[in-house]
Amino acid sequence: MLEYHEVTRFYGERRVLENVSFSVRPGCLTGFVGANGAGKTTTMRIGMGLLSADDGYVSWDGAPITRAHQRTFGYMPEERGLYPKQTIATQLRFFGEIHGLSGKEAVLRADRFLDAFGLIGRKDELLESLSLGNQQRVQIIAALIHGPTCLILDEPFSGLDPLAVDFMSTVLREKAQEGVPVLFSSHQLELVERLCDELVMLVDGSIRVNGVTNADSDADMPTYRLEMGEDMSSLKAVRGITILGQGPGWVEFSPAEPGVEQEVLLRAVSLGAVTSFSRVHTSLTERFLATNK
């Protein structure tokens, strides 16, 4: 497990990370979101050992992380981190060898990945001749070729079409299922919500959200919505609720304690036909916007 412990980092006088703590658990896809300049890339670079923390530390499986651990990780930097004027096969072999594989093993693994990713027929072409989506496939192979113990991917979905997004999602899901902790940043919040098991949200260098992606952000004060044709003004009389919004045929309210919403429902049913009664979920995008206001 990869863990950040109260990591703080300055660029000159400017503090870009402040007491950042979170975990990337094995078998989990952890989404890392935040506005531009929130500190995501800096956090990931610290995890990879490319930058040092001014305070706090990162641990791997409970012990302070070492360069030796970090060199077993797979990493995808923001934008394209490959050689545009080199053939696909040659550079994958290079990335394999730089991670400590023998030349033979690197070629073998590269071929296997290229075959699985549908690029084996183009392995002798220059990288720049591939489409963005295919370049991203090569990029992920470069991160996977040495069998990484952890994956840290900065914007892996950036600029991809829906098919390529689907392909990349499948690859990441498979790696997570193999027990590899996967941390990736993205601005595609719906995708993060759909794909990730856990979520970390960074705002101005500080953690604002850290937990299960689908966890209800308003668990301590849930919102319910009730819709019916009858007059609902008498519902206000139910003790322990706060009306959050009201309109013709609908009302949204928050119960002071669990169970009160059932009383409201019973009262509504006694008034007439209830057409809809549901808990209101806040989407990640709404939460993101609310948190970053």
């Binding site: 670079r45 990879m48 050992g49 490319l50 360069r67 970090q70 060199r71 990780f73 990493y75 995808m76 930097p77 923001e78 934008e79 394209r80 981190g81 490959l82 050689y83 545009p84 990335f95 730089i98 991670h99 470069a142 991160a143």
Partner: peptide, 17 residues
């Protein structure tokens, strides 16, 4: 500078000294 520009340097620096 090409490796910096293409960010390959980040992968390389992560993989080795």
């Amino acid at each position: 500078v090409e490796e910096k520009e293409s960010r390959v340097v980040e992968i390389l620096a992560a993989a080795t000294s």
